[in-house]
Amino acid sequence: MLDEAWVLNGSVALRPEPFGALAYDFTTRRLSFLKDPALVEVVRALGEHATVTETFDAVGIAPADRPRFGAALERLAGQQMIVRRDAA
């Protein structure tokens, strides 16, 4: 995943909240919670960078935190909240 291009699913809207953001998928009517403001930044920025790793660089995610963020992105991918760009 880290070397691939991803993007927030077009049917998903993010609403900022004190803890991070609510993510709502208008198609599946599924509500999810992004429990970290930095993760919200990453998700928002995914579409602007060639790979996930470049997004981490741009947002400034420390190397030690990347496994945690990578796992969170995998979960979001499983829920179709984010999608592969070539598939989008």
């Binding site: 609403r15 909240e17 004190p18 803890f19 609510l22 509500l31």
Partner: peptide, 17 residues
């Protein structure tokens, strides 16, 4: 400070869910 999500909910959100 709220650490669990449920604590954030107890303190209220910017808009209702």
């Amino acid at each position: 400070a709220a650490t669990r999500l449920v604590d954030h909910f107890e303190y209220g959100l910017d808009a209702p869910i």
